[in-house]
Every structure is written in structure tokens, then in C-alpha cells.
């Protein structure tokens, strides 16, 4: 069997979400498939940051594992995903993972950019490790990548694939100018920073990335959510893969009916029918004359609806 180059994800997030997710987890070194026992996965070091998981997501290692064992199901229940997987699914892009700095096992990777055969090779390695030390000393989770058997380009792709928030490059010119180049994972922005300002700049950038990822995700959720009040609007939104907020009469038989009516042909989409996902605690105003989008009876509450298997 030909070994995969592991240099990139082949699936597009918007085109084949399930495949993209599997590739992002595997190539991002979060899990490894365990073909001997179906449904079991190996959790690899990048996938576990116990203290951060517990602090930021209220997910324990055990809880995470239980969720991962239902990996395929999770892939297709985007809005129901647990927070940690949500970090992957929400923030990933076609290059791979994009980790929010607060839960990233490695927040900064430092890469040296030698000119082939240059005499300053060792100097660059030392500079890399010095930068790593400086950042670690400031409580930043940094890692120097000075492996000599991979090209810079490969290392850049590896960093992007594994979702490390910041990449620091240091080449001969940077060395001469006592500076480094910083590249952000979320938007590819580049900037040159003096070594003396490094800690402050890195901390500032990590904060900005965290905040930016949140804003982007929030906007995306808002854009993907649609409020509807009629069956026709509902069907249209469903075909557009929206997260739908609709008023309904809260009857079990009506939910079953919606599921049946949205399965297969009628909506043009494949897979299972739509069902309620949750009823938001914060309810939009429900007018007395608002009718259930599905049954036409008086509506009792708003719920989120989406497709499931």
C-alpha cells in the first residue's frame, strides 16, 4: 500500500464534511484508526490536554473518549457536538485544524529557515531553541521544530495541518536584525517582530486569535441559523442545511410526522428526516396567533430543528 504523504487534507470542509472531519482528526494526530476492533480509536497526545479540557470545556478524558467512540455520529450532528470536538469542527479549515489558543496543546511552533549550505545553520537552530525557551519561560506552550530531515515548506504544512495557532520563522536576515517573523494560523497574517517585544506580541496575538475565532464562529452560527414560520420556509431552509428555529405545538406525533415528511424525496436531501435538536432556554416572543409550522395548530414554543440519522 502506498503511504500517504500526509501533507494535506484532500476533502473540502464545505463539500464532504464527514471525510474532512476524519482526515482532520487523523492527520492532525488526534486519533489513529484501530482497524482490529471496529469503533475503537487510539487517542494520540495532541488530542489530550487534560487540564485544559477540564477547565475550558467541562469535559473529562473519559467523557471525551465516550464521545469519540461515537465519532461518525458526531460528525453529522454538528450542532450537538461536545465542546472539544466543536473546537475542531467549528474552527477547522481546508488546511486542517485550527486550534483556539487556550486549548491548543502547542500554541507556538518555532521553525528555522536556513539557506542551503549556509554557515549559520547551527546559529539558526540555537536561535530557534532560544525563542522556544523564552516563550516557555513566559508560560506559553511553545515548541521548536529543528528536525533536519524535513523542509521548511513541509513544516509549515505540518503546523497548519495540526492547527498550531502561531508559527514563528527565523532565518538569516531575521537573525541579523534581531527579529522573527510571526505567521498566524487563522488568517495567515505575517509580521516581523523584534526579539525584545516577542513575549508581549505573542501573548497579544494569541488573545486576538482566540477572540477572532470566537467571532468568526459566532457569525457563522448566526448566518447558518434561520427562523421560519411556515412549512415551505422550513423545507427551503432544510435543503440549505440551515439550523432552523421554528414555532411548533410540542406534540410527539407532530415531530414524528415532520421526520417522516422530510425523509428522502420531499426535501431533495439524502439521509434521515429532521427532528428537534433542543428547545432554547431563552425563547423568542411567541405571539398568541403564531401557528405550528408543521401542523397549523397553535404553537406552544420555539425549538431548533435539523437533520439527523
Amino acid at each position: 500500500m502506498v503511504k500517504e504523504t500526509r501533507l494535506g487534507i484532500t476533502a473540502k470542509k464545505d463539500e464532504d464534511f464527514g471525510k474532512w472531519y476524519s482526515e482532520a482528526c487523523r492527520f492532525g494526530e488526534l486519533v489513529e484508526y484501530y482497524e482490529s476492533v471496529k469503533g475503537c480509536y487510539i487517542l494520540k497526545p495532541s488530542g489530550i490536554s487534560d487540564e485544559y479540557l477540564e477547565r475550558y470545556t467541562n469535559t473529562t478524558l473519559k467523557g471525551l473518549l465516550q464521545r469519540l467512540l461515537g465519532l461518525q455520529e458526531l460528525v453529522d450532528k454538528r450542532t450537538q457536538g461536545p465542546p472539544f470536538e466543536a473546537a475542531c469542527m467549528t474552527h477547522g479549515d481546508d488546511k486542517g485544524l485550527v486550534f483556539p489558543p487556550k486549548v491548543a496543546p502547542v500554541q507556538v511552533v518555532v521553525i528555522h529557515v536556513p539557506i542551503k549550505g549556509a554557515a549559520d545553520y547551527q546559529e539558526l537552530c540555537d536561535a530557534c531553541e532560544a525563542v522556544e525557551s523564552t516563550l516557555l519561560g513566559a508560560g506559553i506552550r511553545a515548541e521548536a521544530d529543528i528536525r533536519d530531515n524535513y523542509s521548511c515548506g513541509w513544516k509549515y504544512a505540518d503546523q497548519e495541518l495540526t492547527g498550531v495557532p502561531l508559527r514563528i520563522e527565523t532565518g538569516p536576515r531575521d537573525l541579523a536584525n534581531d527579529q522573527v517573523r510571526i505567521v498566524t494560523r487563522d488568517n495567515g497574517a505575517k509580521m516581523d517582530v523584534k526579539r525584545g517585544d516577542l513575549i508581549e506580541q505573542v501573548k497579544d496575538l494569541l488573545e486576538k486569535i482566540q477572540s477572532n475565532l470566537y467571532d468568526v464562529a459566532k457569525r457563522k452560527v448566526e448566518e447558518c441559523t434561520q427562523k421560519v414560520e411556515t412549512w415551505d420556509e422550513f423545507v427551503e431552509a432544510l435543503s440549505q442545511k440551515k439550523l432552523i428555529l421554528a414555532p411548533w405545538c410540542d406534540k410527539v406525533e407532530v415531530e414524528k410526522d415532520v421526520k417522516r415528511r422530510t425523509r428522502g424525496d420531499e426535501t431533495g436531501g439524502g439521509g434521515g428526516g429532521a427532528k428537534t435538536l433542543c428547545t432554547p432556554l431563552e425563547q423568542p416572543e411567541l405571539g398568541e396567533e403564531t401557528l405550528c409550522f408543521a401542523s397549523g395548530k397553535p404553537a406552544k414554543k420555539w425549538s431548533y430543528w435539523g437533520r439527523s440519522y
Binding site: 484501530y34 482490529s36 476492533v37 475503537c40 480509536y41 487510539i42 487517542l43 494520540k44 497526545p45 488530542g47 489530550i48 487534560d50 478524558l61 473518549l65
Partner: peptide, 23 residues
């Protein structure tokens, strides 16, 4: 122990608890 393991270069990970008998 977690601190000591990481200080000495180890990373935590997790393997499934079901192992084929042939292994």
C-alpha cells in the same frame, strides 16, 4: 506523577481496552 512524566519528555495518550486475543 503527570508533572514528572511530562518533565521527562513523555506525552499522555489513550489506547482502547479491547485487544484481539491473537495479539
Amino acid at each position: 506523577l503527570n508533572v514528572k512524566f511530562k518533565e521527562t519528555g513523555h506525552s499522555n495518550m489513550y489506547f482502547p481496552q479491547f485487544i484481539p486475543y491473537s495479539f
